[in-house]
């Protein structure tokens, strides 16, 4: 394997390099990788690519621009590290008023739900007429948590016009049948000055 003009006959696997960078390897494996890296510039160049990807992912994860299911600890940590987190926590069946400010860093919906028996849960975002805007299939769920926490893209929310979106948590069984676990309506009012990104 050739990287940056140098080659390695026994390259470290990409996944192992990532685990090394994330400090997830057992110490004996880590020692072996470090011995190799101290003699191998090809794998060193590959590690630089891993670092670059890792740093870009960290920046992206911290940007609040992704729509993703996260944990309570994640949200708390974001607030503790100085991010301005706007959070809405509707009860099942509740319709709430919401907005986003220009200086918000993260937008989070905490959807209260009992998940003790569900194996697969989808989160469906629908427009008022029932048209599905986005489906997040087979989201990770913590049965004991009592809620699903979804980070909505702050970039999208800041560009959004005044609008209503309904979140539906759906249990999906093996045959594809859906059972509604909870429905939550967000009446978003645009308060950021200037025109929205779309009408």
């Amino acid at each position: 394997m050739d990287h940056g003009g140098v080659s390695c006959s026994n390259p470290v696997e990409a996944a192992t390099l990532m685990d090394y960078w994330l400090a997830l390897l057992p110490s004996t494996d880590e020692d072996a990788i470090e011995e190799h890296l101290m003699t191998c510039d090809a794998c060193g160049n590959r590690l630089r690519q891993v670092i670059s990807l890792s740093e870009s992912l960290r920046t992206l994860a911290r940007s609040g621009s992704l729509t993703v299911v996260v944990s309570d600890r994640f949200v708390k940590h974001a607030a503790e590290t100085g991010l301005r987190v706007r959070e809405y926590a509707p009860a099942r069946g509740e319709s709430i008023q919401c907005t986003v400010a220009a200086d918000d860093d993260m937008l989070v919906a905490r959807l209260a739900v009992g998940l003790t028996t569900a194996s697969r849960v989808d989160l469906s975002w629908c427009e008022p007429r029932g048209v599905e805007h986005q489906r997040m299939a087979d989201i990770p769920i913590d049965a004991g948590a009592g809620s699903v926490i979804c980070q909505q893209s702050i970039t999208w929310a800041k560009a959004s016009p005044t609008m209503t979106l309904t979140a539906r948590l759906l249990e999906v069984n093996e045959t594809g049948e859906e059972h509604l676990l909870g429905e939550y309506t967000f009446n978003h009012t645009r308060t950021i000055p200037g025109p929205p990104g779309w009408e």
Binding site: L22, S54, L57, R58, L60, A61, R62, L66, V68, V69, V70, S71, F74, H77, A78, M136, A137, D138, I139, P140, Q151
Partner: peptide, 13 residues
Amino acid sequence: KERERSVVVMTFY
């Protein structure tokens, strides 16, 4: 996929 995205975001955040 949703689980993959959650794991990636929480791992790297």
